[in-house]
Nucleic acid binder design. Structure first.
Lengths: 121, 121, 121, 121
DNA sequence: GTGGTCTAGACCACC
DNA sequence: GTGGTCTAGACCACG
């Protein structure tokens, strides 16, 4: 389910964060269900447990998951698009950057229309 | 003209790259005009000359500028939105990711309208 | 009567200790009266019997309760604010720390008034 | 200046956080001055650099310090008792605990008066 | 030089 | 079994 690209410049813990957010958002991980344990996921991905723990901890601070020491890590009840907000913050930063580089609004909109062309939302 | 934020998380050389791209994109630096020398710019911004050199080198690899040894650094002739393409590639990747996480098109458009609200393009 | 929050960061056995101390302090559990058995309480709270036993053992070491093998667990005769002393030791250490950090007395008093605002003691 | 107690149950990184907050609050570390580097402090205290880095990172998230990668860690400009607020949060949690254990308000106030007896604030 | 990331272990507390 | 803390290293990016 989860995959990482060790050759990417993006830190592994950051890749994990994004993917877990995605899976929660898509409903693959349901509310209050337990996520893979730190050790299990680390073994599965071939990375160090510390790296997985770091991703989990960061997500906990964002309120996406909660941990019970000695029990496991669980999905927080999803509040009204809370996770969406997190994802959009990232997009916003990139768009602000693009704007600062001289990109025009219609270029962004064209890009969005292109990417979402086969969907109705 | 050029400013940097030493406290930002973004590397200085990267900030420089973006700003120079923007200025070229806006026509402030015209085709084949000379950019400030490494030493001049470094002095002006109070940063290490190596940092400026790095930004110039990276821009050269992207085909945005070219250097003539002993002469200076110059703006490459702008081909149809070539620079834009570079910037937009990054945006596209992020948007594709957002879509995969369940973000809707209208959320992106709202974001774009918000960021460009005080401009006409 | 006793409740625990399984999601809290505080260990369950510790939550139990505090609550039992409170109930004794308030006179709900009177001197030499018997506390619920380990098994009963564990069943009632839905926690592991080991966890309840640990709380009881800790309280016994503090002299708050005593056990008679084969009989049950009982409340020790309360000596003049003995239990309070245990709790207050912890508070004192934290307050001393706060003072060393530059916190003023009136800030502490305001905090206390705030927390006890709906009570008369 | 900074000391740790490796025998304490309190995590080293947490001890460091508190002490650094204290020193900043007392003005020992001034605004925008650089804190000891991760490696330096780790060597000085005889702990692992990761442990010091963890304390710094946590303080950064609280807005107490800021880091410039490759440069160092610096004290954030102190805003109106912002740090005080952090310290008081800790006190508040302990007092709430004490209240739940049956401690009365006047006991806390007596304790405060006792600790601050030789000061006028 | 600085901080950031990561590995490969270890021991502990909790349940 | 679980997560939390910590050590002793390593390599990288930045300036």
């Amino acid at each position: 389910m989860l995959t990482i690209d060790t050759r990417s410049r993006e830190p592994i813990y950051s890749q994990l964060e994004k993917q877990i957010i995605k899976l929660i958002n898509l409903g693959v991980y349901e509310d209050d269900s337990m996520l893979p344990s730190v050790r299990t996921l680390a073994l599965e991905l071939g990375v160090n447990p510390n790296t997985v723990a770091r991703a989990y901890k960061s997500l906990e601070q964002k309120g996406v998951i909660y941990t019970i020491a000695g029990k496991g890590v669980f999905v927080s009840a999803r509040e009204l698009g809370k996770i969406n907000t997190i994802v959009l913050e990232n997009v916003k930063a990139v768009l602000a950057d693009a704007r600062a580089s001289g990109v025009r609004r219609d270029e962004i909109i064209a890009l969005a229309n292109n990417l979402w062309e086969d969907s109705n939302d």
